[in-house]
């Protein structure tokens, strides 16, 4: 399989993630979508590293996974705090910025 197949997979995963972020009503669902998008990026990095013969992409991906874990922890902590304050995690109800 060539590079194109990996890139297509990454694009599909990214699209699914974006769809989830935009459409999910639950904040946790949005977080999951973000995770998917991050992983699509990681697939891209690994694929390019594999086909260009450089290891830098691999190392970068390891860093990115670590950061994604931290980000997920941060995101969940925010969701919990949000729930404590607003008694809801539904994204539709969180519209304080409404004009």
């Amino acid at each position: 399989m060539g590079l194109q197949a990996y890139l297509t997979l990454a694009a599909i995963v990214f699209g699914i993630g974006l769809f989830g972020v935009v459409t999910r009503r639950n904040t946790i669902g949005i977080l999951l979508g973000i995770e998917l998008m991050m992983n699509a990026v990681n697939i891209n990095l690994v694929a390019f590293a594999r086909f260009s013969g450089s290891d830098v992409g691999m190392i970068f991906t390891v860093f990115a996974i670590c950061i994604t874990v931290a980000e997920a922890a941060m995101g969940l902590a925010i969701v919990i705090l949000l729930f404590r304050i607003r008694r809801t995690v539904m994204a539709d109800h969180l519209d304080l910025l409404k004009g």
Partner: peptide, 18 residues
């Protein structure tokens, strides 16, 4: 008239961004 664009929902902004 323009204020109706500003829904205050993160997802709408993200959608616009994408």
């Amino acid at each position: 008239e323009m204020r109706s664009i500003q829904t205050g929902r993160v997802q709408d902004y993200l959608y616009g961004l994408a």
